[in-house]
């Protein structure tokens, strides 16, 4: 791996590249823990099985020296700040390792006043990509095992982070699978689109993993858990599933950062990110909004302009 500052297109990304990021993260994490800039760092530790990584909150220098970054670091850690480890923010500033797509979630959460920039020390990763689901984890990232979302990534550079680890390197000539799939669905006749989604949604077992993993699904009580009155049937039946998926897509519209975590954790392989992307595309077309790396005043569905399009209204 060379250390050229401008972007560098390659056909495979070797373990050495990730090793260099790992070193940089460790150095930074150790430093900010030592000088007490932060009370802890949310990052990745090696998983118990080879080729895996697991999210962790490290609070000591010894632990920080074990932090890693590899293509197995798929998780979007920002979820640890709004949900699982929410309490940690109260104790002081927190460091967090963030890839570009994770930083979009952090920015969105700042927009929604769930996080404050000054409470975070963001260790950005100049991320070339992570593993897709069910692929061979060889240590080297190639076109064959890269995640679908990474094929169309526009945020390899984590701009706006406090420090950035890595040099800009990305895989060359990736086909935009998701965009192609979206175009394919759009081109279907309406009845076929319905059949396509009906089949997908009918498989949903309502495990709610997609909600639990989403940094933006931080509601104390989810609409879909309410039963008085019940808005969405809670058992995994076709009717409730359809409603759940439409509600989920609507609730994330204009907020979703596109980390595709919901799709990754879905045990039933439901292509949730296609819905997210379709909504993002619509909000871009209508209101010129795109989830970015920096917070904005208000999300697109929380603001309005007097001259917004109303051609569909009589």
């Amino acid at each position: 791996m060379n250390a050229k500052a401008n972007k560098n297109q390659v056909t495979s990304i070797e373990p050495a590249y990730y090793q260099a990021i790992t070193e940089a993260i460790r150095k930074e994490a150790v430093q900010i823990l030592k000088d007490e800039t932060v009370v802890g760092v949310v990052g990745y530790l090696p998983g118990r099985r080879k080729g895996t990584a697991s999210p962790a909150l490290v609070t000591t220098v010894e632990e920080a020296e074990k932090l890693i970054f590899s293509p197995a670091c798929v998780n979007n850690l920002s979820v640890y700040l709004t949900k699982a480890k929410k309490g940690v923010l109260k104790q002081g500033k927190v460091g967090i390792v963030a890839k570009g797509c994770d930083m979009r979630a952090l920015a969105g959460l700042m927009t929604e006043s769930q996080l404050q920039r000054e409470d975070l020390f963001i260790i950005g990763v100049v991320c070339p990509g992570v593993y897709g689901f069910g692929v061979e984890r060889t240590g080297t990232l190639t076109e064959a095992n890269i995640a679908r979302k990474c094929r169309e990534c526009t945020v390899h550079m984590p701009e706006g982070s406090d420090v950035a680890a890595g040099t800009h390197t990305e895989l060359a000539d990736l086909t935009p699978e998701e965009a192609e799939e979206m175009a394919r669905i759009e081109a279907m006749p309406q009845a076929e689109r319905w059949a396509f989604w009906k089949e997908h949604f009918s498989r949903c077992i309502r495990c709610m993993a997609c909600r639990q993993v989403c940094p933006f699904c931080y509601c104390e009580q989810c609409l879909c858990d309410k039963n008085r009155p019940q808005a969405v049937e809670s058992s995994p039946r076709p009717a409730g599933n359809m409603a759940w998926h439409l509600v989920r897509a609507m609730h994330l519209a204009g907020r979703c950062g596109g980390c595709a975590e919901c799709e990754r954790v879905c045990p039933m392989d439901i292509p949730l990110n296609l819905l997210n992307r379709r909504m993002a595309q619509e909000l871009k077309e209508l209101y010129d909004f795109e989830a970015g790396l920096t917070p904005v005043e208000k999300g697109p569905l929380n603001e309005y302009k007097e001259n917004d399009d109303q051609s569909f209204i009589k």
Partner: peptide, 13 residues
């Protein structure tokens, strides 16, 4: 705005 977005979603499914 909300219904403009919702229409797009309904149409997509």
């Amino acid at each position: 705005r909300r219904f403009a977005a919702f229409r797009a979603l309904l149409s997509f499914v």
